[in-house]
Design a protein around this nucleic acid. Structure first.
Length: 328
DNA sequence: CATTAGGAACATT
DNA sequence: AATGTTCCTAATG
């Protein structure tokens, strides 16, 4: 078992960006794969016990490599080739794209270069977005504190399987980092400075892109009719502890996205039905960073609400049907 | 068989 | 102290 090493090392030569790698989509794919799997503990391919030993909900130093969620998020080829960056004052987007990625043949010929480019850029932005939420940092490197920089470095180490580079960039803010040249980076780390510089440049370009066209967040959510608009599941980062009943309401209020797993039977009375208990439990587990969450445990939490008068069983008790005591 | 119901111990905020 | 999580036993359909 061990490390999910990637056998697609060959594509690094063709696709300079890790996001165009065939495995780039595993961050979503695991959710889809798990669709058919009943017990959530097998969702991660980890026995529950080994998980408990590893799980650290709050680490001072991000133990990313130990966090199965993260591991499945954005895998990159071990030999992730640094993007051959050419410093030119062209629009930032162009530094994200320079070669059409050799994706799954066929349909690619039909796509225009621009389509491919926007696709790739979209993937990059998505990845950055996810990283931001996981690390709880701003997308724009300029806004980073020293702590944020360290987090980002640790994340990048993980992405590219680098041996602790972060120690060589002590006490630097995001602003410091951005003002450094490629040569400066090389000075800090002879081997990986260029890679870090290139990766940072992607983030900077993405931040610059975002500034140009803000409020572009719903693009992919609208395109994919799949029920995985991540902002609902991954918290928008300040996120104080959310209550289960709030979470369920959130899902219920977005039937477009979640009606396949939870829906109102009678919205006025607050009666709802969980159509896919495993799926709802999985979403809840993602939100709370509880990979071992399942319906058995989720329902236990719902049952705690009986006493508190938040949720109850409706008068005619039915399987997987609950009722908010005070619907709004 | 999945679901329901709660007791109990534990963890996190 | 409040709110969940984990685990468990027993009952239900």
């Amino acid at each position: 078992m061990g490390s999910p090493s990637c056998e697609h090392t060959s594509c690094t030569a063709h696709s300079p960006f890790y996001i165009s790698h065939p495995h780039a989509d595993t961050k979503m794919a695991w959710l889809d794969e798990a669709e058919d799997i009943k017990p959530p503990r097998s969702l991660l391919g980890l026995p529950e016990l080994s998980w408990q030993g590893v799980y650290r909900p709050h680490y001072n130093r991000l133990a990313i490599a130990e966090n199965p969620w993260v591991l499945r998020m954005t895998e990159s080829p071990a030999s992730a080739a640094p993007l051959s960056y050419t410093p030119e004052p062209s629009p930032p987007a162009s530094s994200l794209i320079q070669d059409s990625p050799t994706e799954t043949g066929g349909q690619l010929e039909e796509c225009s270069l621009e389509q491919v480019q926007t696709m790739v850029v979209g993937e990059v932005l998505k990845d950055i977005d996810i990283a931001c939420k996981l690390l709880n940092i701003a997308p724009d490197p300029q806004d980073w504190s020293c702590v944020h920089v360290q987090k980002w470095l640790l994340w990048t180490e993980h992405l590219y399987r680098l041996p602790q580079v972060s120690t060589m960039f002590k006490e630097l803010t995001g602003r410091d980092l951005c003002s450094m040249t490629e040569a400066d980076f090389k000075q800090h780390s002879l081997q990986f400075g260029d890679m870090l510089y290139a990766h940072l440049d992607i983030w900077r370009s993405a931040a610059a892109l975002k500034e140009r066209s803000p409020a572009e967040d719903s693009k992919s959510a609208a395109a994919a009719d799949d029920d995985d608009s991540w902002s609902d599941v991954m918290c928008n980062y300040p996120s104080q502890p959310i209550h289960l009943w709030q979470f369920l309401r959130e899902l219920l209020l977005k039937p477009r996205n979640y009606s396949r797993c939870i829906r109102w039977l009678n919205k006025e009375k607050g009666i709802f039905k969980i159509e896919d208990s495993a799926h709802v439990a999985r979403l809840w587990g993602i939100r709370k960073n509880r990979p071992a969450m399942n319906y058995d445990k989720l329902s236990r939490s719902i049952r705690q609400y009986y006493k508190k008068g938040i949720i109850r069983k409706p008068d005619a008790s039915r399987r997987l049907v609950y009722q908010f005591v005070n619907p709004v």
